[in-house]
Design a protein around this nucleic acid. Structure first.
Length: 552
RNA sequence: UGCCGAAUGGUGUAAUGGCAGCACAAGCGGCUCUGACCCGCUUAGUCUAGGUUCGAGUCCUAGUUCGGCAACCA
């Protein structure tokens, strides 16, 4: 998977044109998270576009924490966000910024607007202003403060800053057009009083800039040439432009693209928080969560996430991608890059009756069937093995791959064996297979070259490691859990999204580092959990192998 | 019913006035010491109506449908 798989999109077309005409000479972008939650796969698309575009054009991308609302934000999220971006493989270098570092400048800019008669202090309450602003089809009316003198506005604004007023008593408004068909242009609030301690500036300020005022100024100060955001900000763009024009400062430009949507996934911050708070998942990094930390723990790779972003592209229309697309990309990556191992999820015992009691052999099994250069590993073999319960069937049809009485199958990398007898418990469940092996078939092939249709995986019972394995499935039972107006999204939670089992694994798996990914052959892709230790092995199933039709 | 935006197979996208292509999904077949991977084949698309043009998915006009916008959130 290539490092920069940025192809082209409508924004890159604009950049190409700007560069060609000389309108711009460099590409500077920014990723501006608000530190009020964990990053999820939707953010990954923005990160991919912001950092990836800068990379493609040899420009730079700033990481800027948009911390203009002290009530919502918390230091806790800052570190997590930095970690997730790095995990995706991006580096902001020296360019780490904070909106809160620009509060002095923003305050001066607000005063500049007041002095130009382009901003005023407004005493209307939230509800009163709502009335004045009116509805889209009707022009609004002018708030009383609109005609206040510049001197009085300066005085009031300074007293807002000094903390003379309670929260909500006044706001500073841009003086634009109360009759604009765009509601955002009907004298939007640009500064509000909030007597809250800021994680960065402490109690220095009790007034904080609103997003629309702050964001364009942040972009301008940093010389951002291409400021990309999601579609819902489209109607904010005239305000973005108005502020920069009135301030007569560097004019960054905003471009909007559509959000990432995936079937069987809910990305709303509020709902994710609900899942965590109500204990419906095991925290923000639960492997079922679409958060980057959850996906990391699940075993998804940053390369696959970026490839998804490249594949879904960047357009101006809403779309919803099928989760199968992502799964396919993940499998492509994992198939290519993960080492093979053997693990039995639902074991039944196999006894090789003609194999010596005390013998242990070690077989060399390839780490990757298509990559000889990755070498082999040694897997111990002995008289008693574990195999998958689904690899035995009574009176199996011809197509069945596995043991049935009298049919020879290959124990992967070891020997050919035949099942002679099946032992069942009182309920008819298979408890044990009595088999014989062909000592001439060492390594898995018989000297006479006879064909064996089936190859199954196995683990030596004596050497097997018991591991907790968490089998994850989709978190929801329907494609769009938000699609039913009558029901809550939680009504569609999949009760089987997590199944914990004890599996029998080949011994080397106990000693791998947390986060190491494997393909357990014929079973799926697995990742050693964060909490995995040799004493308490713990694996998460990332995905099963691509589904195939079973003839059972 | 104001403003802004968008419409290409089931899904995600490509085409920059010149052969509608790719991927996923679905179906059929082949290969295989993983029912994986890999390989071959098949199904299936330019929202509608006009117009410009030798030629329109692309440009123009009108319509239809869908999405977004009325926090002192971002």
């Amino acid at each position: 998977m290539s490092e920069n798989n940025q192809t082209t999109n409508f924004i890159h077309d604009i950049i190409d044109a700007d560069l060609a005409s000389g309108k711009r000479t460099e590409v500077v972008t920014r990723f501006p998270p608000e530190p009020n939650g964990y990053l999820h796969i939707g953010h990954a698309k923005a990160i991919y576009l912001d950092f990836g575009t800068a990379e493609k054009y040899n420009g730079r991308c700033h990481l800027r924490f948009d911390d203009t609302n002290p009530e919502a934000e918390d230091e806790e999220y800052v570190q997590a966000i930095r970690e997730d971006i790095k995990w995706l493989g991006y580096d902001w270098g020296e360019h780490l910024y904070w909106a809160s570092n620009y509060f002095d400048t923003m305050y001066e800019y607000a005063i500049r607007l007041i002095n130009k008669g382009k901003a005023y202090v407004c005493e209307l309450t939230k509800d009163e202003f709502k009335e004045y602003r009116s509805i889209p089809t009707e022009p609004g009316k002018e708030p009383p403060g609109r005609s206040r003198s510049i001197e009085e506005n300066l005085d009031l604004f300074e007293r807002m800053k000094k903390g003379e007023f309670e929260d909500g008593a006044y706001v500073l408004r841009a003086r634009i057009d109360m009759a604009s068909p765009n509601l955002h242009m009907r004298d939007p609030a640009i500064y509000r009083i909030k007597k809250a301690t800021h994680h960065n500036t402490g109690d220095k300020w009790c007034i904080y800039p609103m997003y629309d005022f702050a964001h364009c100024i942040e972009d301008s100060i940093e010389g951002i040439t291409y400021s990309m955001c999601t579609l819902e900000f489209e109607v904010h763009r005239p305000l973005y432009d108005w502020i920069l024009e009135e301030l007569e400062i560097f004019h960054s430009r905003q471009y909007e693209f559509s959000k990432l949507n995936l079937t069987y996934i809910v990305l709303s911050k509020r709902r994710l928080l609900q899942l965590v708070n109500e204990g419906l998942v095991d925290g923000w990094d639960d492997p079922r969560m679409p958060t980057l930390c959850g996906m990391r723990r699940r075993g998804f790779t940053p390369e696959a996430i970026k490839k998804l972003c490249a594949t879904v592209g960047c357009t101006k229309y809403e779309s919803i991608s099928e989760i199968e697309l992502f799964e396919s990309i993940v499998r492509e990556d994992l198939n290519e890059n993960s080492l093979r191992a053997m693990g039995v999820m639902d074991p039944i015992k196999v006894v090789i009756e003609n194999y010596p009691e005390d013998l242990t052999e070690e077989f060399e099994v390839p780490n990757h069937p298509q990559k000889e250069e990755l070498g082999n590993r040694k897997v111990p073999f002995s008289r008693e093995l574990w195999i998958e319960r689904t690899d035995y069937m009574d009176d199996a049809p011809n197509k069945f791959r596995g043991f049935t009485q009298g049919r020879e199958v290959r124990l992967r990398g070891a020997y050919l064996a035949v099942c002679n007898e099946v032992i069942k418990d009182a309920d008819g469940n298979v408890t044990e297979l009595r088999c014989t092996y062909d000592p001439e078939s060492k390594g898995g092939s018989a000297p006479d070259g006879r064909k064996v249709k089936s190859t199954i995986h196995w683990v030596s019972a004596k050497h097997a490691v018991d591991a907790e394995v968490r089998l994850y499935e989709r978190l929801y039972t329907v494609e769009n859990p938000l699609g039913d107006k009558e029901k809550d999204f939680k009504d569609f939670l999949n009760p089987d999204s997590l199944k914990t089992i004890t599996a029998k694994l080949e011994p080397m798996l106990a000693h791998v580092a947390p986060g190491t990914r494997f393909q357990f052959e014929r079973v799926g892709y697995f990742c050693a959990d964060l909490d995995h230790t040799p004493e308490r092995p713990l694996f998460n199933r990332t995905l099963t192998l691509r589904g195939t039709k079973n003839d059972a």
